[in-house]
Amino acid sequence: MQVEAAHIHYCVLIPTYNNGTKIAPVLDAVSDYTSNVIVINDGATDDTAEILARFPQFEVITHPVNQGKGVALRHGFERAIELGYDYAITIDSDGQHDPDDIPLFLQAVAANPGAVVMGARNMEQEGVPGKSSFGNKFSNFWFWAETGISLPDTQTGFRAYPLAPISKKRWITSKFEFEIEVIVRLAWSNVPFESVPISVTYEEDRITHFRMFRDFARISVLNTFLVTLALLFFLPRLLIMRFSLQNSRKKLHDEFKKNKDNPGRMAFSVGLGLFFGIFPVWGFQMLVAFGIGSIFKLNRMVVLFFSNISVPPMIPLIIFLSFVCGAPFVDDPVSIEDFRVLTMDSIYDQLRQYVIGSILFSFLAGGLGTLISFLILTFAQRKPLED
């Protein structure tokens, strides 16, 4: 029996290469949910073509020679976009994934329109290869470093993609690393992410075309490139955009109200934001504060809000107080009188005083911010915050 989601115009993409012994049951199971299936035969040299001929209701794209999973997915996306689909669900052809989980993706898409939905495998279950578990943790870490988003499974091939943002991009990878590039760049475009738990089966005769050294090297090079871009441009822009798009004052009030029973955590969030808003890492305050706040599991919204103490109107005061704090620690300090005629050249000449002072000032502001916030929040526990 075929089950269709009337309100979601989607298709299923199945890239395959020499999985002739596994693909027929996958196609049979997928057909229970939809006939909107695009199979990309990526130059298979086994009996895949003959097996696919038994499913005339599905569209088949055939590559004369193997070009890689990334190219197969890209061509599948292009065809799905041409046919007017809004979403594409990708599933592997080796029998690892259970097509009966397709309704989970449709439910998640319905609840989160426009989001990428990632299938999350239980990597701790019995039978999961050790290299797969390690590789997933490795990939999850780098995705977090590149986007600030934490996902339980970034290597799964069972995903639901919104096609509108994909149609606007040109891709640079062609092999297994494409599945990393696509989610990182969608995250940089502010596309939200959701995860759903899925079943996974690892059989002893499972066919994999992942080559440990070659493909791992390609993935490592890609991650190096993406991390560099993230640090220099995309993460600062994304953090600022996310922060400015919200009603920050109301959001901040809601965060304190929601976490009023944990004054220590919230006070530390305030202090950390103030610390990095003043600490001399100009241009990267929000990014560094966000990362450290995530490591310590603090309230990242509060951290980001208070790291904005270094907004342009406050910069002259921060520089002045930094010079004041650093004056006792240099031989020829800039005095208050000198500050009246302070120029960029004189700031450069007294860079040591500024750096020392700004570090001290950041500790002072962070410590006072934490202490004052803790006292206020502790007092506020006695009566609820007003709406």
Rank of each mutant, 00 (worst) to 15 (best):
residue 359 I to A: 13
residue 297 K to Y: 07
residue 315 I to R: 09
residue 303 V to R: 06
residue 359 I to V: 15
residue 279 F to S: 08
residue 280 P to F: 11
residue 304 L to D: 02
residue 347 I to P: 13
residue 255 E to I: 12
residue 331 D to A: 14
residue 288 V to W: 02
residue 348 Y to S: 14
residue 375 L to D: 03
residue 361 F to N: 08
residue 342 L to T: 10
residue 369 G to Q: 11
residue 269 S to W: 02
residue 303 V to T: 12
residue 377 L to Y: 01
residue 340 R to N: 00
residue 341 V to T: 12
residue 345 D to P: 15
residue 304 L to F: 04
residue 281 V to T: 09
residue 343 T to S: 12
residue 291 G to R: 13
residue 333 P to H: 01
residue 331 D to G: 15
residue 284 F to D: 00
residue 263 P to E: 07
residue 268 F to K: 11
residue 375 L to T: 00
residue 284 F to N: 05
residue 364 L to W: 08
residue 323 F to S: 07
residue 361 F to R: 12
residue 334 V to G: 11
residue 282 W to A: 00
residue 346 S to P: 13
residue 329 F to L: 09
residue 322 S to M: 07
residue 277 G to T: 03
residue 340 R to T: 00
residue 360 L to T: 14
residue 307 S to R: 08
residue 268 F to L: 10
residue 274 L to K: 04
residue 275 F to I: 02
residue 346 S to K: 15
residue 341 V to G: 09
residue 309 I to D: 00
residue 335 S to F: 04
residue 333 P to L: 07
residue 286 M to P: 02
residue 350 Q to M: 11
residue 296 F to K: 07
residue 354 Y to I: 12
residue 337 E to W: 12
residue 262 N to E: 13
residue 257 K to I: 01
residue 256 F to S: 03
residue 271 G to P: 09
residue 334 V to D: 08
residue 267 A to G: 04
residue 266 M to K: 01
residue 353 Q to M: 14
residue 262 N to G: 14
residue 263 P to S: 02
residue 320 F to K: 04
residue 366 G to W: 02
residue 348 Y to T: 13
residue 282 W to S: 12
residue 374 F to Q: 09
residue 268 F to V: 13
residue 291 G to Y: 15
residue 256 F to M: 03
residue 349 D to E: 09
residue 354 Y to H: 13
residue 336 I to F: 02
residue 306 F to A: 11
residue 335 S to A: 06
residue 351 L to V: 14
residue 360 L to W: 10
residue 263 P to H: 03
residue 326 G to W: 10
residue 301 M to T: 12
residue 304 L to T: 08
residue 295 I to Q: 11
residue 268 F to E: 06
residue 282 W to Q: 05
residue 347 I to S: 15
residue 358 S to D: 06
residue 375 L to W: 06
residue 273 G to R: 11
residue 310 S to L: 10
residue 303 V to A: 08
residue 276 F to H: 01
residue 281 V to C: 11
residue 369 G to A: 12
residue 312 P to A: 01
residue 329 F to T: 14
residue 378 T to C: 07
residue 341 V to W: 08
residue 288 V to M: 09
residue 257 K to P: 04
residue 284 F to L: 09
residue 350 Q to S: 13
residue 303 V to Y: 01
residue 378 T to V: 05
residue 301 M to Q: 07
